[in-house]
Write a protein that binds this DNA or RNA. Structure first.
Ligand SMILES: [Mn+2]
Ligand SMILES: [Mn+2]
Ligand SMILES: [Zn+2]
Ligand SMILES: [Zn+2]
Lengths: 142, 142
DNA sequence: AATTTATATTATAATCGTTCTAAACTGTTG
DNA sequence: CAACAGTTTAGAACGATTATAATATAAATT
């Protein structure tokens, strides 16, 4: 459990004013035991259903993107119409369950280190991401 | 170099009528020495600039999606606003050059086999994709 | 070959997630 | 407090994609 003052500092330290809306979003995203994945729509719904304060959609977009730019969120794109944000900002890979549309974090005992033998000349690797799509066994069984 | 009749068979065999538009798109996509990556926009531009026949945008969308559904194209999503199609339908991974916005195929002497030690129980792996983002040494370091 | 039926193409409208706008509001600084 | 920069907001605008429904074409049937 974080204290509100921690979020205030976090925001101030990154040049973002600790507004009521940003603090509420911090609380929803970061005041948890476990990291999680969400879409903009999930977040907007979560806030409007569970809190009396209403935050405009534009602010939700702005804030999520600001948090992403500051490195507090990662974005994971699954397909052209499905983009998730991740509160787990460590380097890690994902399973994507095509049946449930859920993203699941991998850790190192699930996917070994990716061995990049040759990189493009003159370029630096900025990220390495593995996405393993999975689906129910029973689809191709009979 | 493929013959037109090969595309006719290919289309017929997959239950798609070999229309003039689909054959033109086959020619543009598959009558090449090397596979390549393209966006819908690239393809539409290519056709309108290099050929006198005009194919409506709706048909280009329909055809590309039909070809994807039939397994003649793969879709690779880079970010929420960048989706590419790939005429290379073999299993392979990609470098994405953030400076030039170009996708580059990897082969096995660039990225080793991804070691998936544990899969989700009761699920079958439908694909494994690695995306290595690269950028010029002097910028964009994460 | 003509007719019938199913499928495909097209221009254009509709959709919808996201971004923009510009006015009102709030946090910060002195 | 005053002054200012940064933020929020509702609603408009945007743009990529999809839906529509009339027309055209391909295939199947007679
Ligand atoms: Mn698509
Ligand atoms: Mn985004
Ligand atoms: Zn994650
Ligand atoms: Zn490729």
């Amino acid at each position: 459990m974080y204290k509100n003052s921690e979020f205030v500092s976090k925001l101030r330290n990154s040049g973002l004013r600790p507004t009521k809306q940003r603090l509420k979003i911090c609380e929803v995203l970061f005041n948890r035991d476990k990291t999680f994945h969400f879409t903009i729509n999930d977040l907007a719904k979560n806030i409007s259903e569970n809190f009396n304060e209403k935050i405009s959609l534009a602010t939700i977009y702005n804030t999520v993107h600001a948090f992403k730019d500051k490195g507090y969120l990662k974005e994971i794109t699954i397909s052209s119409d499905k983009s998730y944000f991740d509160t787990n900002i460590t380097k890690h890979h994902h399973f994507y369950d095509e049946d449930t549309n859920l993203l699941i974090d991998c850790n190192d005992n699930e996917i070994g280190k990716v061995n990049i033998k040759n990189n493009i000349t003159g370029k630096k690797i900025s990220s390495v991401e593995v996405l393993v799509r999975v689906a129910s066994d029973t689809q191709n069984q009979n």
